[in-house]
């Protein structure tokens, strides 16, 4: 009895809700490579693969595709390698398009232009961050979602300082052959879930995490956010008992998630 109570959906932390929202971002993706920046997305991809998207491919974080990826925390297990995927093959793979990445965003605007290269003028930034990394090639080639563990007006901005990941307004200016692979999936933050399924490809709110009000989201968004039906805003779904068990016992036994998302 106590077991059931411990795993009950009502015991889900904010981080676990985010991880499940990340898993949901992969729903329907089928047999593609799922890649992640951050702990909640890494848990989400493992959850999706273990439950409703079993054909997803995941890597060991180095250079092989593995059938059951290691936990994000705690001791690893013997990995069964499915394929070799060194960096050179990653570029071939991603330009080919069979991938969905959840990337980090130091800044993101309402059309999903993303920046994790630097803050300030690129010539001499106030803060140099990761650099362009693979964001330009990723976003033009395959599906991309974003994870924002701490949504504020400094992250959800009117205009990003540098565009590393290509947003929908910029993609719309390119010919259709060029953007054949461009597809923005979801934005998952510590507060809510968003997508870009609007006529002009602008970001819209699709669900609030339990305990978060619309006002809190708007206060932490630096651009006019589309809220489709204010009176009937969905709540981000709670993890199932099975999902909570997987997260707590198998995927994140040491609770790394709590370090990334405050409850």
């Amino acid at each position: 009895m106590s077991e059931v109570t411990r795993e009950g959906p009502e015991t889900a932390s904010r981080g676990e809700i985010c991880a499940v929202a990340a898993a949901e971002a992969f729903r329907g993706d089928g047999e593609i490579l799922a890649s992640c920046f951050g702990i909640a997305p890494a848990i989400g991809a493992r959850l999706a693969k273990a439950t409703f998207e079993e054909d997803l491919l995941m890597t060991d974080g180095v250079c092989t595709v593995v059938d059951v990826p290691n936990p994000v925390s705690g001791p690893g297990h013997d990995l069964v390698v499915e394929a070799w995927l060194p960096f050179r093959a990653i570029f071939d793979h991603l330009w080919n398009g069979k991938r969905h990445v959840i990337m980090a965003a130091s800044q993101i605007d309402r059309f999903g232009n993303q920046n994790f290269a630097c803050i300030g003028e690129h010539a001499q930034p106030k803060a140099q961050l990761l650099g362009m990394r693979g964001a330009p090639g990723n976003t033009i080639s395959h599906k991309t979602s974003y994870w924002v563990p701490n949504q504020t007006q400094k992250v959800f901005v009117e205009a990003v300082d540098v565009v590393s990941g290509v947003g929908n307004d910029r993609a719309a200016q390119l010919p259709a052959t060029t953007t054949r692979g461009h597809c923005l999936g979801r934005v998952i933050s510590n507060l809510a879930v968003y997508d870009f399924e609007t006529p002009d490809g602008a970001m819209q709110l699709i669900s609030l995490h339990p305990g978060v009000g619309l006002e809190e989201v708007i206060d932490n968004t630096g651009f006019p956010l589309i809220v489709p039906d204010e009176a009937n805003i969905a709540q981000t779904r709670l993890p199932t008992a099975e999902e909570l068990r997987l997260i707590r016992e198998t995927i994140d036994p040491e609770g790394f998630l709590a370090r990334e998302v405050a409850n």
């Binding site: 050179r88 330009w95 362009m132 330009p136 090639g137 976003t139 033009i140 910029r170 200016q173």
Partner: peptide, 28 residues
Amino acid sequence: DEGMLQWGLLAASHHLPFLPTRAGLGSD
């Protein structure tokens, strides 16, 4: 972009002036 760097090295190693890619389009 990381892939563009690979492309630039590959172009140089083939003594080509450039190699085409979509990576970079639409970004800064």
